[in-house]
Design a protein around this nucleic acid. Structure first.
Length: 874
DNA sequence: AAGATCACG
DNA sequence: ACGTACGTGATCTTC
């Protein structure tokens, strides 16, 4: 049997050390974690190096100890524990529980005394003992069997105090450390000692007289009159100080060395705690070590058909796809799991399994999935209509924390403590190593995913309910996924010839502008290269440098506009940029993604943005040009899918400011919307104290910029940049705005305060965004988080509203038996196509549904237009 | 793979 | 004093 090794840790001391050694880290919910993190890394290191068989962490019990009856000023004058540290102690306790390490504390005694008592007992039993602390006092406990580890700078750098090390360092025995302390005192514990005697003098004296008692017996022999005088005057104090510094090795503890066996951590609990604390590096490191071996075998049947008797409700399903482009990619096969057993059926066979298809299409057969939108869309391509999705892991995880920046099932599962599933990167490889593995490998991978989904359903739903977000998840996001799938699958028709023709024209214009630029520059260069352009403009032509980027001169549009009067080439460059953008992103880009049906099928990312908005990719149909006429013409290529049909567009008017009026409960702002006034003009009237007919276009423009600023979480600098005014003027402006709209002013302050208290900003439908940086000591990070705390409820609530409108809209189209289809969403705008004869119906129905999506304190208003192309819906 | 730029709400 | 407006995606160049 290996020799017993007992590890005794001074919990309080190490937590303090870790806290002050590390910067203030927080987890994604804003709880400080640096002390727990430091403690953990130190613990991991010691466990690995020492491999103890017994362990205990001792804590100080409370404020009063038996030492206070000797000396009431003991530990007096100490700064009280910072709240950022106090809040970490419960997590430290949980951490130790997860490691299954015993913890102990005792009324009236300090951690030292518990350690002293246990180490004495262990020492007598000839156990090897290691004591770990940040407090050098503990070195008095060193012996032949006991080594005391004291953390130096940081927390993982450790000095080992054996009796011989102490001898070498101080020329004293461990026990004399107490006498040393008695003479020199300890300011941190407020132990007085003998004033004027420091470490050097104390050591010198103790080399001559081994203890304080013997020193005083021979006080007359001490050399140096001054020193002798000081010692004589403070005899009582020195003896008391010694008493205070002496660790009590007979504390009345009711725990025995035999009870301290350490058998390693409860891995699952530990991992899930690390998840909660966002200890990503620790998780990764230890997974790296366990990844290969610990993944459990699964029960899997690869089958050619699936019949009713193999199906149940609920079951988790996963359709394994070649890649993320589910509208076009290869579909490998479907895995089904009831939590224990899994089936995998290749996609070709699935298409010939009528009982399985019936089951998939049966609303009453409940399915749990990861990314229902992808599966529904991919099945729809084969005319299979997925119904009965009861749980969607990607949406649930996104609602629990939208900051989770991954769409990989395994990565999401890991976040919630489930690890028997691998990432796509591991199975398929990434970059150059990418390859399609065998069917067996794919089948197992898909089956593990289905298992993961099945196992995580309860946990996620519990968490959603706990956060009061279940309704948002179940009645908004989940039904929306299905509607988005229908919109994506429907797609929008594009007039390919129109795009090609526009491309031809653009190419000609670009060619001639390009030549003019080369002429002006006197040489050929790559106009698309900011680096090369910078050299031409700022070195060759000697134009003034207005702004720099990290890597060189800025040639961004706002800079070039300021340079325009300086040189005629600037205008050409701006035009080249503008047209080049249209050509590459919109003409060539869109032509590339028109499918055989003549349509473009974007994909909405429903679990991506931190505010709750959607995003659109492959292609992005949420940023089709509109502001400039040349670009806007791109919209002429977006057309209805049938002759005698039209496109119909409806957009919310000022939805974000209406949301603000509602949330801030600002009377002035509310009244503007109740009376349906032009909000920017109204703002100008209020801020400039003028009548409606006195508002100039500049005043309105300024008011509009301030309104934007308010929505974004205003800063004087941002506004000054936007309006090209000084910062001071911008600051005055904001001040005037806020005193005109006192409700808004109050809202801004309250949003930050509330987010700070709760740890997150929330929307009308209780969507959350965690903002740990509100507590950051970094000005930039904190300011950013503060602006986010103001902006997220506004932008996010607007997103909630339009999502709700989309659900209501889909229902209304069905109920009215309309042929009209909802095709696109652009944040505050919905685009439909419909037969001509339905347009009049939509003109009534759509604005009504949109306006009634969610009841606010102010009316919601939607404006609409229809036309033969998207361009004409204005 | 990162940075700059520019398209949208 | 600190250095910024909020949220996205695609393309191009450069490293």
């Amino acid at each position: 049997m290996t020799k017993e090794k007992l590890l005794l840790l001074d919990g309080n001391s190490l937590a303090y050390r870790a806290f002050f050694a590390l910067p203030l880290l927080t987890n994604d919910q804003g709880i400080h974690t640096n002390a727990v993190y430091g403690f953990t890394t130190m613990l991991q290191k010691i466990l690995e190096e020492e491999k103890p068989t017994k362990m205990l962490v001792a804590f100080d019990a409370g404020k009063t100890t038996f030492r206070h009856s000797t000396y009431s000023e003991y530990k007096g004058g100490r700064q009280k524990t910072p709240p950022e540290l106090s809040e970490q102690f419960p997590y430290l306790r949980k951490l130790l529980d997860a490691y299954r390490i015993k913890q102990y504390e005792l009324d009236l005694y300090e951690a030292d005394d518990i350690i002293g008592t246990l180490s004495k007992e262990a020492d007598e039993q000839k156990l090897e003992v290691i004591i770990v602390s940040g407090d050098k006092d503990l070195t008095q406990l060193a012996s032949d069997n006991t080594t005391v580890y004291i953390t130096r700078k940081g927390i993982t750098d450790i000095e080992h105090y054996t009796p011989s090390h102490i001898e070498e360092k101080y020329g004293l025995t461990p026990h004399q450390i107490i006498d040393m302390k008695g003479l020199m005192g300890d300011s941190s514990d407020n132990i007085p000692g003998v004033p004027g005697v420091g470490e050097k003098t104390a050591i010198k004296l103790l080399k001559q007289y081994p203890t304080i008692e013997e020193l005083y017996q021979h006080i007359d022999e001490v050399s140096g009159a001054k020193l002798k005088e000081k010692l004589a005057a403070n005899e009582e104090q020195a003896k008391m100080s010694k008493e205070l510094a002496t660790i009590n090795r007979q504390a009345p503890i009711d725990i025995k060395v035999e009870e301290l066996n350490y058998e390693g951590p409860d891995v699952d609990t530990l991992f899930s705690l690390w998840q909660d604390l966002s200890f990503k590096s620790l998780i990764q490191k230890s997974e790296f070590e366990t990844e290969e071996k610990e993944i459990e075998a699964i029960e899997l049947d690869i089958v050619e058909t699936i019949t009713k008797d193999q199906l149940a409700s609920p079951m988790a399903i996963h359709l394994e796809l070649e890649n993320e482009s589910y509208h076009t990619c290869k579909r490998f096969g479907l895995a089904l799991s009831n939590g224990n057993k899994t089936y995998y059926i290749p996609f070709e066979q699935l298409q010939n399994s009528p009982e399985l298809i019936d089951w998939l299409q049966d609303e009453n057969q409940k399915k749990y999935v990861f990314d229902s939108k992808a599966i529904q869309s991919a099945l729809y391509r084969s005319d299979i209509h997925l119904k009965g999705v009861e749980f969607d892991l990607i949406l649930a995880a996104y609602i629990v924390n939208p900051a989770m920046s991954t769409d990989d099932l395994a990565a999401v599962a890991k976040e919630f403590g489930y690890r028997d599933v691998q990432t796509n990167d591991i199975i398929y490889g990434k970059g150059a190593k990418k390859a399609i593995p065998s069917q067996e490998v794919i089948a197992e991978h898909a089956s593990r995913k289905a298992n993961a989904v099945f196992h995580l359903q309860t946990k996620l739903e519990e968490q959603l309910k706990e956060n009061e977000q279940f309704d948002l998840y179940r009645n908004l996001e989940l039904p929306l996924a299905s509607i988005l799938s229908e919109m994506e699958s429907e797609g929008i028709t594009v007039d390919r010839e129109r795009l090609v023709e526009m491309g031809r024209e653009l190419a000609e214009k670009l060619k001639s502008i390009e030549e003019e630029i080369y002429q002006a520059a006197g040489e050929k260069f790559n106009i698309n290269s900011p680096k090369q352009l910078g050299v031409i403009l700022f070195e060759k032509l000697g134009l003034p440098i207005i702004k720099k980027t990290k890597t060189g001169y800025s040639t961004a549009a706002d800079v070039l506009e300021k340079l325009a009067p300086e040189h005629e080439v600037i205008q050409h460059i701006l035009e080249y940029r503008q047209l080049g953008k249209l050509q590459s992103t919109y003409i060539e880009g869109l032509l590339k993604v028109i499918l055989e049906d003549g349509k473009i099928h974007t994909r909405y990312q429903q679990a991506l943005t931190s505010t709750g908005r959607l995003s659109s990719i492959d292609p992005n149909l949420q940023n089709i040009p509109v502001r400039l006429e040349e670009g806007r013409k791109i919209r002429q290529a977006f057309v209805p899918s049938h002759p005698e049909w039209k496109l119909f567009a409806a957009d919310y008017s000022q939805i974000e400011l209406r949301v603000l009026a509602h949330m801030a409960n600002d009377e002035n702002l509310k009244s503007a919307f109740v009376h349906d006034q032009d909000i920017h003009t109204k703002t100008a009237m209020t801020v400039f104290h003028v009548e409606a007919d006195e508002v100039t276009s500049d005043m309105r423009r300024a008011a509009k910029a301030v309104n934007f600023g308010i929505v974004y979480g205003i800063s004087d600098y941002g506004l000054s940049q936007n309006l090209s005014i000084t910062r001071k003027e911008a600051a005055d402006f904001i001040e005037r705005y806020l005193s005109s709209f006192p409700g808004v002013k109050k809202y801004m302050a309250e949003s930050i305060k509330e987010a700070k208290e709760k740890g997150f900003a929330a929307t009308i439908l209780n969507r959350r965004r965690y903002l740990p940086d509100l507590h950051s000591s970094n000005f930039n990070l904190r300011s950013f988080a503060e602006r986010t705390a103001m902006n997220t409820p506004i932008q996010g609530s607007a997103a909630d509203i339009i999502k709700k409108a989309m659900i209501d809209m889909a229902k209304a189209l069905k109920e009215h038996n309309l042929k009209a289809k909802m095709l696109l969403q652009v944040h505050d705008e919905l685009i439909f196509e419909a037969p001509n004869e339905e347009i009049a119906i939509l003109e009534k129905l759509v604005p009504e549904v949109m306006a009634n999506a969610i009841k606010l304190q102010v009316p919601l208003k939607a404006e609409f237009a229809s036309g033969d192309t998207w361009y004409e819906t204005k």
